[in-house]
Every structure is written in C-alpha cells, then in structure tokens.
Simulated scan of single mutants.
Amino acid sequence: MTIKRFGSLGGVGTGGQHLPFSSAVQAGGWLMVSGQTPMTDGEVVEGGIIEQSRLAIQNCLDIMQQAGYGLDTVVHVTVILTDARYFQSFNKVFKEVFGAHPPARICAVASLVVDCKVEVDVTCYKAP
C-alpha cells in the first residue's frame, strides 16, 4: 500500500508558527484530513459559530479536493465544539454541506488549542 501525504511541509498556525503535520494522508483509498479550524493564512477568522463552522468545513473540503476526493466520499466526521450551545447551529451548517451524503459523525465539547469555536476533521474513502 502506498501512503501519500498532502501538505507535508506543514501549514502555518496562529502567529505564523510552523505546523509539523500533514494536512491529509492518503492510504489505500482512505484519506484522513487533519483537524481544520476556521483559519485563513494562519489567522482565526472572527465570527459566530455559523461562520466559523462553514470555514472549518470548507478548509476540509479544499484539502479533499486537492487530493481528488469529493463530498460523496466522506465516511466520517469528527467535530469538536467549545460550547455545547453551538450544537444546533453547527448541525444547521453540517446539513447544508452534507445533506445529500450524510456521513457518520462524532461531536464532542472540549477546549481547543486555537482560540476558536470549532474544529473539524474528515475521513474519506474511494476505491483505489
């Protein structure tokens, strides 16, 4: 099995720090996208949970597209919210994006290392 890494030179985190992990890793038809926060060019984009959720998910979708995967290939999503009160609002965005192809999902509440409201990762599969 071949393993292919995307963004392995590392992204840029808050304050311009180098992130020492791949944006995604592909192995045998699977694609695992690292957790994405609502960041653009290494800076958190301010806004409410709706705006931050859309951007975190879009960041995942952009990485997936670079690797040749689409929405219909998403099999699992992990969501971390910083406040349980964000759950319904996040679900609204989630349904907008994944409505036609709902994946399995886990959603948890925890503190994040980055000062934002949400982090999202995805696992995709397509036959090799």
Results as ranks from 00 to 15, higher is better:
V122Y: 03
M64T: 01
I106A: 14
G11F: 04
G48E: 07
E51Y: 00
A27M: 13
I57L: 13
A24P: 04
A67C: 12
L55C: 11
V93N: 04
T14E: 15
Q17T: 08
G7C: 10
Y69D: 12
K117T: 02
E119T: 02
A67P: 02
G47S: 12
G13L: 05
R5F: 15
P20A: 13
Q58T: 07
L71K: 03
S34Q: 04
R85L: 11
K92N: 10
V109N: 09
D62T: 06
L71D: 06
Q26K: 13
F87Q: 07
L19P: 14
G16Y: 00
V12E: 15
E43I: 03
D121W: 00
K92W: 00
D83F: 02
V97E: 05
G11D: 09
Q52H: 04
V109Q: 10
V114N: 11
F98M: 02
K4I: 02
V118D: 08
V12R: 15
G28D: 14
G16D: 10
A108K: 11
T40A: 15
V114I: 13
I63M: 11
D41F: 07
M32G: 14
L81G: 06
S22V: 04
G10T: 00
T14A: 14
H18D: 14
A56V: 03
Q65N: 13
E43P: 10
K95P: 01
P102D: 05
G99V: 01
D41V: 00
G7M: 05
G68V: 04
V93P: 03
G35V: 01
A104P: 00
D41S: 13
D115E: 13
G15Q: 06
D72E: 14
N91Q: 13
A100I: 01
R54L: 12
V44N: 15
G7A: 09
S22I: 04
V97D: 05
R54K: 14
M32T: 05
V25H: 06
V75A: 14
Y86C: 11
G28A: 15
Q88Y: 03
R54N: 12
Q58E: 15
A110H: 03
C60V: 09
K126M: 11
P20S: 12
F6C: 13
V79K: 07
P102R: 01
G99E: 02
G35H: 01
T73M: 13
T2D: 15
Q66N: 12
Q66C: 11
G42E: 06
M64R: 02
V79G: 09
T82R: 04
C107P: 00
V120R: 03
Q36C: 15
F87D: 09
V97A: 06
K4E: 14
I3F: 11
K92S: 12
I50D: 14
I80L: 14
P128V: 09
L31S: 10
E96G: 10
V12K: 15
L112I: 02
G29D: 07
G13P: 03
Q36G: 10
